[in-house]
Simulated assay, not measured.
Amino acid sequence: MNKASVTTSVKIWDLPTRVFHWTLVFGIGFSWLSAELGGLWMDWHMQAGILILALIIFRIIWGFVGSETSRFSSFIKSPARAIHHWQELKDRGTAYYAGHNPLGAWMVVFLLVGVLLQAISGLFVSDDILVEGPLYGLVTESTAGALTSFHHLWFNILLLAALIHIFTIGFYKIRKRTNLIKAMVAGSADWPVEQQPIPDHLSFKSPWLALSIFIIVYAVVHFGLDFLKTL
């Protein structure tokens, strides 16, 4: 075994970030399926949308108070740094990062903002037959129509971004021998010992703190929407 193939396991992602990631993946998938099925499934579609909205708000909060690798300050870099990472990939094969790399970080930001816009617009949609978002009554028909059109169109853009994200993960796995999915599932990555320093002193926050934050966020979103519907 040559030196380049020697790796050590390094914890990268905390449990809250991993649970958020996969819950969001399944939540978006369910939202798409329930919208395609229509009918009574739209009630579940609305509930999934509320859950997704709470998830995104939680992740934004966790990006400021959460574990080191989950904080925006640790992975959002300048566009110039993202371009430099692309050069690293071409020159060195793979440049490992304790968390999101500078290119992937911008995709994460886009997806967070994009899904947030999708969830918020869904609160005001209407199909003019049976389906109305919980805040439909707060806007004019023309505004609701515009937001409904946006909700449908924007999902296609998010779908394209998600496909690019999946393609990139496959590229790292096949061409760069970097298993990004394993790290997001197990929390640990296979860090090459030749790349120093090895990030073995990362700080992680308690999952109970994350759970408390999410419960509060979900309660505020759920009961806040109920209150707004009465206005």
Rank of each mutant, 00 (worst) to 15 (best):
V6T: 14
T7Q: 05
T7R: 00
K11N: 09
I12Q: 01
W22I: 15
I28A: 05
W32L: 11
W32Y: 14
S34G: 09
A35P: 02
E36C: 13
L37G: 11
W41H: 08
M42P: 02
D43E: 12
W44G: 13
I52M: 00
L55T: 08
I60Q: 00
G66P: 01
G66T: 09
S70Q: 01
R71F: 03
S74F: 08
K77W: 08
I83P: 06
I83D: 06
H84A: 15
T94Q: 13
T94C: 13
N101W: 01
P102K: 03
P102H: 00
A105C: 04
F110N: 07
F110L: 14
L111S: 02
L117W: 05
Q118H: 04
G122T: 07
L130P: 02
E132M: 12
G133Q: 05
P134W: 02
L135N: 04
T140M: 06
L163A: 13
I166R: 04
G170D: 06
K173I: 08
T178G: 11
L180I: 13
K182E: 04
A183S: 11
A189M: 08
D190E: 11
W191R: 05
Q195K: 08
I198K: 05
I198A: 07
L202S: 02
S203D: 12
K205G: 09
P207I: 10
I215H: 03
I216V: 15
V217D: 02
Y218L: 15
V221M: 04
L228T: 12
